[in-house]
């Protein structure tokens, strides 16, 4: 099959009208997405203080600084913990809720809405409310005290101690490598909030997937004597694999880009244990006057997400 230049007048008209149709979107995307990406790549090889026009070329210096400075590894560690903690749990709970909300139970519409509601609420508002709830005399500690459970000290959002390190301390394990110490109590608090916020969205995606499944398969399985649990693991989960892939991908991208919650709740404190890559980009660019370095982090963040995507795609490969 040879490519031939289409010169017929109708084909050209088609082409022109085609471009005209996509022009509004293309212009907006070019201005606000493609051009900034090019700009960021360009900036990552330069040094720029934001407030002065000089942008001297520094080659790979910004990229070398990723490993030389302390903050990038810290932020990477926090972000990995956040992702590892949030993605599986939000996927599992989302799937669980979707299966329940897919049953013919009374008030189903209400529950669907109630679970979905946090996902469409403003993250800033949610963050502020959780900030209150996590206070020393806030709602969460109040409930813990009521049921006789211990409360963390320092309180949730100001506790920089790693949860794994805290769990192992009674066993005599001291001075864990910071990678192994686990997310800090403060980061854990934010993770719990993110899970709470996002399960509704996950649920809705799974619900859509569930409703696309043919009832015939379930009827056949029921006739063969499969229990509900068996049906779930042998039919629902395998059939939902493409949806699970989609949800996990979105979850990974979302958790690697966490910013608003950190910006509102902690600004990286305490002791940088809630410093995420997304927030580090902002901090370096806008408070530390290092936009070139911030751009390099953004590019690194993009490459990390891309790499994780490929790994995950090969793990969750669907046979399509």
């Amino acid at each position: 099959m040879a490519f031939r230049k289409t010169t017929s007048p109708t084909a050209r008209e088609d082409m022109i009208s085609g471009y005209l149709f996509i022009a509004p979107a293309l212009i907006v995307l070019t201005l606000f997405v493609f051009w900034p990406i090019v700009q960021i790549i360009w900036l990552s090889f330069h040094e720029w203080s934001v407030i002065t026009p000089e942008k001297p070329w520094v080659g790979l210096e910004n990229y070398r600084n990723l490993t030389k400075t302390r903050d990038f590894p810290i932020a990477l560690r926090n972000t990995v913990w956040l992702s590892v903690g949030v993605v599986p749990i939000q996927t599992l709970i989302g799937l669980f809720l979707a299966v329940i909300a897919n049953q013919k139970i009374r008030g189903r519409g209400f529950f669907r809405m109630a679970f979905y509601f946090p996902s469409i609420s403003s993250t800033v508002v949610i963050s502020v409310i959780f900030l209150w709830m996590y206070q020393q005399n806030g709602l969460i500690n109040f409930i813990l005290r009521k049921v006789g459970l211990p409360t963390p000290m320092p309180p949730w959002m100001s506790n920089p101690n790693g949860v794994i390190a805290m769990a192992l301390k009674p066993l005599g394990v001291d001075h864990l490598n910071p990678w192994l110490a686990g997310p800090s109590v403060a980061l854990l608090s934010i993770m719990m909030m993110i899970i709470w916020t996002s399960v509704g969205g996950t649920m809705v995606i799974f619900l859509a997937g569930l409703q696309g499944l043919s009832q015939d398969v379930y009827e056949a399985a029921a006739l063969d004597g499969a229990t509900a649990t068996q049906q779930f693991w042998q039919i629902t989960v395998p059939l939902l694999k493409p949806i699970i892939f989609f949800v996990v991908t979105l979850g990974l991208i979302g958790t690697f880009q966490v910013f608003d919650q950190i910006f509102v709740m902690s600004q990286g404190a305490p002791a940088k244990t809630t410093l995420t890559l997304g927030y580090l980009v902002y901090q370096e660019g806008f408070t530390n006057f290092a936009m070139g370095y911030a751009s390099a982090i953004a590019i690194a963040l993009f490459l990390i997400i891309l790499a994780i995507y490929f790994v995950q795609r090969s793990v969750l490969r669907t046979d399509q």
């Binding site: 506790n159 920089p160 990286g268 002791a271 408070t287």
Partner: peptide, 20 residues
């Protein structure tokens, strides 16, 4: 560069306060 310094110094103090 003082803002970055203040952030780092705060983190050091918070680690000290947490007994790390």
């Amino acid at each position: 560069g003082g803002q970055k310094f203040a952030g780092d110094a705060n983190a050091a103090l918070q680690s000290l306060w947490a007994g790390q």
